[in-house]
């Protein structure tokens, strides 16, 4: 038994140290990496508590997806654009400290009341074993008792996704691309930038050259002699 306690203290100690690193690190990427370390250790503690599904879900969802996205954003943003980490006004810092304390108190209250009362909850080990394991137990509980909250959460996430898409606004990218095409491409001399009214060469008209199928639903026009230039076609439907 002692060895398990030892392992638990090891995991918990690393988790706490990593959590401290999240707050203390100057570099936001280092913070995120510390958070990952903390999450992994917490997942290991879940395994010790025989909650393997929870542990794996923690790793997949939090470390595998969310923190990766956080890192993604951090890398896209220039370092000097980030807000000062340990700065802020004194009032804001005091409020943040207080909020942290309140959160800690809430968690402690929840844990203490549960363990002091000694209530094992609605799924004692025998009941879990009866349905085949903790995954099955979680599944049953989620999709029977908590059906409505699950659906509500799903709806909420969907709405959030749509909202994110709207905020990112793909058409804005199109707009900017159009601007980029007009202004920012360094083909400074291309005729649209300089002389939009005067087309440089007139478009070739229809033609009667042999057409050779060339694969990928394309055809190649096989010009036999050069006189046919003005009758040269070859083009027309696709415009930029």
């Amino acid at each position: 038994m002692a060895i398990e306690v030892l392992i638990f203290y090891l995991l918990a100690g690393v988790a706490i140290a990593a959590a401290a690193g999240v707050v203390l690190a100057r570099n936001p990427v280092h913070s995120a990496v510390s958070l990952v370390l903390s999450f992994v250790n917490v997942a290991a503690i879940y395994v010790m508590l025989r909650a393997e599904f929870l542990a794996v879900a923690q790793v997949i969802v939090y470390t595998g997806a969310i923190i990766v996205l956080v890192l993604f954003v951090l890398m896209l943003v220039q370092q000097q654009d980030l807000p000062e980490f340990h700065g802020g006004r004194p009032l804001r810092r005091a409020v943040g400290f207080l909020l942290g304390l309140v959160l800690l108190a809430e968690v402690a209250a929840a844990i203490l009341t549960r363990s002091l009362r000694g209530a094992p909850g609605s799924w004692p080990p025998e009941a879990v074993a009866a349905v085949g394991g903790n995954i099955q137990a979680i599944g049953r509980e989620l999709y029977s008792v908590y059906m409505l909250p699950i659906q509500a959460t799903a709806l909420l996430l969907l709405a959030a996704t749509v909202g994110a898409l709207f905020l990112a606004r793909p058409e804005l990218i199109e707009e900017r691309l159009a601007v980029a095409r007009r202004l920012f491409t360094i083909s400074l001399a291309h005729p649209r930038g300089v002389d939009p009214l005067q087309p440089v060469a007139e478009l070739p008209g229809p033609h009667d050259n042999e057409r050779k199928p060339a694969g990928g639903d394309r055809v190649l026009v096989m010009a036999r002699n050069a006189e046919e230039f003005t009758e040269q076609p070859a083009w027309g439907e696709i415009r930029r």
Partner: peptide, 14 residues
């Protein structure tokens, strides 16, 4: 382990 397949995915995501 009873979550072996998910464990594989989790390791892959790490």
């Amino acid at each position: 382990i009873n979550v072996a397949a998910l464990y594989f995915l989790a390791v892959g995501s790490m």
